[in-house]
Simulated scan of single mutants.
Amino acid sequence: MMKVSYPLIKPKYYKSLILDLGNFIRHPINELSIKKSTKHKIYDTIGLFFIKVVFSIMVASLLQLVYEPENQTSVSMSERFGSFPLLLIGGMILPIFEEITFRLSLKFRPIYLALTSGTLTYYVITKAIFKSRLSMVDETFWYRIITGFMILLIVYVISSRRFIRQDLQQFWKKHFKLIYYLSCISFAWLHIFNFELNLINLLLLPILTLPQLFSATIAGYTRVAFGFKYPVLLHMITNSLFLSLTLLPLN
C-alpha cells in the first residue's frame, strides 16, 4: 500500500518552514526554488498561511491588552459594500493590486517595474495626498487612475531601453537584499494609513504594522522562491478569512 504523507499536520514540518523562512529573511536570494514540486509549493504556502495567522492573532491579542486603534479602512469598506462585493474587492481585487505593488517587481522585468510603479503611485496619492480609499470611486478617482497609468507608461518606456534594462538587471542582482527589505517595510508602514494619523499611532507605527511586516516577509519569500501566484493566493486567503469573520453575526 502506498504511504500517504500529510505534512500540514506534522509539527516538524512547521519547524522546517520557519527555518527556511528565517534563512531567507537573513540572506534573501533572488532565485526560484527548483527543488520543490507544485504540490509541495502549495503545501508550503498553506503552511506559511497557518504560521502567519497564528502570529497575527498573537500580536493582535497583545495589542488589545494595551492599545487597540480602529482600523478605518475595514470600517469604511464594511459601510460601503455588501457581503459579496466586500469579499470580491477586499478578498480578491485588493490582494492582486497590493501584490503587484509590493511583490511583482522583486523579480526584475521592465513590465513588472512599470506595473509596480503605476500601482504604487495610485496607492500613495490615494492615501497620502487625497486621504481617500483605494476602492473609493470619488471625484479624485480618475485623476488617481490616469496619474498611475501615466507613470506606468513612462517607467516602462525608460526601463525597456537596452542599456537601462541591463543596468537595472545588475542592480537587482547586486542589491536584492535591500530591495526585499524595502518592499517589506514599505508594505507594512504604508498600512499606517489604515488608522487615524495621530501622534500615538505614528509613534507606535512599527508595532501597529508588525503583522503586515511579517506578512510581507512571507509573501516576498513565496514570490521569489515559488512564483508570483503563490503570494497572491496567500493574500487572498488571508483577506477573505478575516473579512468573513467580520461578516459573522456576533450579536
Rank of each mutant, 00 (worst) to 15 (best):
G22H: 12
G22L: 13
G22P: 05
N23L: 10
F24M: 08
I25L: 14
I25N: 04
I25V: 15
I25C: 11
R26Y: 12
H27G: 08
H27T: 11
H27S: 11
P28K: 03
P28G: 03
I29K: 15
I29G: 06
I29V: 15
E31C: 04
E31K: 12
S33A: 14
S33D: 15
I34Y: 14
I34N: 14
I34C: 14
K35R: 14
K36P: 00
K36N: 09
S37P: 02
S37A: 06
S37T: 09
T38I: 12
K39N: 08
K39W: 06
H40Y: 14
H40N: 15
H40D: 15
H40V: 11
K41P: 01
K41Y: 02
I42A: 05
Y43T: 10
D44Q: 01
D44H: 00
G47N: 11
G47S: 13
L48T: 02
F49C: 06
F49H: 04
F50M: 14
F50G: 07
F50I: 08
I51V: 15
I51P: 01
K52A: 14
V53P: 00
V54S: 11
S56L: 07
S56Y: 01
S56P: 00
M58V: 15
V59S: 02
A60Q: 06
S61N: 09
L63R: 05
L63I: 01
Q64C: 09
Q64L: 14
V66K: 10
V66M: 11
E68C: 03
E68A: 07
N71K: 02
N71E: 04
V75C: 07
V75H: 09
S76P: 00
S76N: 09
M77Q: 02
M77D: 00
S78P: 00
E79A: 11
E79H: 12
R80H: 15
R80M: 14
F81S: 03
F81W: 09
G82Q: 10
G82A: 07
G82V: 05
S83L: 09
F84P: 03
F84D: 09
F84C: 10
L86V: 07
L87K: 08
L87T: 05
L87S: 07
L88F: 12
L88C: 11
L88G: 06
I89E: 05
G90M: 00
G90F: 00
G90H: 03
G91I: 06
G91H: 05
M92P: 02
M92T: 10
